[in-house]
């Protein structure tokens, strides 16, 4: 029994042929794994390595280098809040403070008790004319205030249909326990 489902493993096996050299498939493959499981477990990285005929240590080395790969569980909705200079000068710290209290966590990466939320303080996301801003559920949100970030949380907590579910929501989390 693998932690990654067979159709994901199949997609991963198809990746190398899309690149001039097969090694380029490692990050797209890790994407698929992370999308299914929510974060990259050692077992998942080993399976990716196996499918791509790479050393597991190599794959883990790549995964740990990039901030968009998560090696620990995250909330269902991950807030990436920019706190770099342009956003900081326009109140990003207040936005982060409110977000933390709204979702009830103390530090970046910590998952809220209901499992719905976590946040990261991230570097510049390249939307500085709309500072302060954040990325959540594969979309940017602009001109943030403490109140507007509280609304973003509330919309997701209430599961309103207006909010698109994040891609990885389709992956059943209990899979890890099955393994």
């Amino acid at each position: 029994m693998t932690v990654l489902s067979e159709h994901i493993l199949e997609e991963i096996r198809d990746l190398p042929s899309k690149f001039p050299q097969p090694r380029s498939a490692v990050m797209p493959a890790l994407d698929l794994a992370q999308e299914e499981l929510g974060h990259l477990t050692p077992e998942a990285m080993t399976e990716v390595a196996h499918e791509l005929q790479l050393d597991p240590g190599y794959v883990e080395g790549v995964a740990t280098f990039y901030t968009l790969f998560h090696l620990a569980p995250t909330g269902k909705h991950r807030f990436y809040v920019c706190t770099n200079l342009s956003c900081m000068l326009r109140g990003a710290d207040d936005v982060v403070a409110r977000l933390k209290s709204e979702i009830g966590v103390h530090e970046p990466g910590e998952v809220s008790k209901d499992g719905l939320f976590s946040y990261e303080e991230v570097e510049c996301l390249g939307a500085c004319e709309y500072a302060p801003m954040c990325r959540v559920d594969h979309a940017y949100h602009y001109d943030l205030t403490p109140d507007s970030i509280a609304r973003l949380v509330a919309e997701r907590r209430n599961g309103g249909s207006a909010v698109a579910a994040p891609k990885k929501a389709r992956a059943p989390r209990k899979r890890k326990a099955d393994a």
Binding site: F19, R23, S24, M27, G61, V62, Y66, T67, V122
Partner: peptide
Amino acid sequence: IRLYRGHGAYICGEETALLESLEGKRA
């Protein structure tokens, strides 16, 4: 023309680091 998505690493703006990343390595 093909697209390749980065994964959050400022260093990839440096052209040879970008190439390493495109080749599936630490940038």
